[in-house]
Design a protein around this nucleic acid. Structure first.
Lengths: 211, 211
DNA sequence: CCATGAAATGAGAGTAGCTGTCAAAAGGTA
DNA sequence: TACCTTTTGACAGCTACTCTCATTTCATGG
């Protein structure tokens, strides 16, 4: 605690060799995983194979990713999303903020590496373990949304209504992604998100008004 | 295929000894699991311990329940819920149907074995594996809701809007249960459900109107 | 009441994900 | 160069879960 931190160098200064190497192995592991999974499927790919392909030991793989599913699913987009949401005007309805932010994300981030998001969503509907892990990550994103909502509306982030609202939203968006994957990614994801949010905003009823 | 089925006796006739025994072991396994978990926690309880306590072999445990989490979570309430929902008038808003059906379920079913629902919801927020399994079961219940909605509104159960709506609802209710457990089951679950559904019906915004 | 067929069980071996420990190697600092 | 910290690899170990096969238990037709 009192000793000087050697890692986590000051922001701005170029990260040391150690940090760069860490990032490289992290990427190596993930890319090896993607390659192997596309080749032989998820279940057939063992962590040892991944370790070998990434030229590290199996222990190292588990040091970088707590579970095998995390190798596929870990996304560091949550803080980015939070930042973008906070940048929106506070009087804008959250559903609208989400609509704008997500549309941009789909148009930019997703098309940067479209194969990856396709692989992810495909695995999400095909491999139970991956789906589980993804559903779990929903609650993390949900809590993030709670914070944003709380800040905007002045309510408590732990309030029932806020939490229920946030989780409902996140689940709706996840289901939208699932729909996209189940239809072989034929539709435009941005449009699907739009439709979903429109429905939710129109009173949370599948017909626009309550049936 | 051509041979006569010995099991699955005709509905109405009393099930044979085999069926009764099967049900008994199923219950024995589940009760042994509950007991052990309350004693020593979820992770510390191994399947072998459960098998021993239930006086069966470990293989048998896995024959009855595909995973350890299923022993805790398997609920056969989905078909019941579906039946109750279908029994409601078709022109009633689904949110209202859910409100009524769930309130009755909370008042009847849950208070029949309140310790079990408390244990379940507690594990749901404490044990990641259980939470995962429960989230997965959400999608099953979600599909059921899709069917009910589709039948009522004449739309397709696979339609984006229907699916998104259903999953949003289920997730919202699950979050309500989580909230209940996190607050040590102090609140009245029925009231919490009421509040959640009211918010959703009022336009899917945590304030009643869009913030 | 017994013989035959089917289903349920137990025992055991095997796989793979994941955890923990410990010593060696690599990176950073003085 | 010497020293300390972090990262890594090798290994052992646990447990959930699968598969196979022999044995027992139940149902049924003669």
């Amino acid at each position: 605690m009192t000793a000087a931190r050697t890692t986590a160098s000051a922001p701005g200064s170029r990260p040391g060799l150690r940090e760069r190497k860490k990032l490289k192995t992290r990427i190596a592991i993930r890319e090896a995983t993607y390659r192997l999974i596309e080749d032989q499927g998820y279940e057939a790919t063992t962590v040892e194979q991944i370790a070998e392909a990434a030229e590290v030991s199996a222990s190292t793989v588990f040091r970088y990713f707590p579970t095998k599913e995390d190798i596929v699913l870990t996304d560091e987009y949550d803080p980015l999303l939070e930042q973008e949401l906070r940048a929106r005007p506070a009087d804008e309805p959250i559903v609208e903020s989400l609509r704008l932010v997500l549309r941009r994300a789909v148009n930019l981030g997703f098309t940067e590496e479209p194969e990856v998001s396709r692989l992810r969503t495909r695995l999400m509907i095909e491999v139970p373990a991956v789906r589980s892990r993804l559903l779990e990550s929903m609650s993390v994103t949900g809590r993030m949304l709670c914070r944003v909502i709380a800040e905007r509306t002045g309510r408590d982030a732990g309030e029932l209504e806020v939490r229920v609202f946030a989780m409902g939203l996140i689940a709706a968006l996840t289901e939208t992604a699932a729909y996209w994957a189940e239809h072989d990614h034929r539709d435009d994801l941005g449009e699907l998100v739009d439709r979903s949010l429109t429905m939710l905003a129109a009173g949370f009823a599948p017909g626009g008004e309550a049936p």
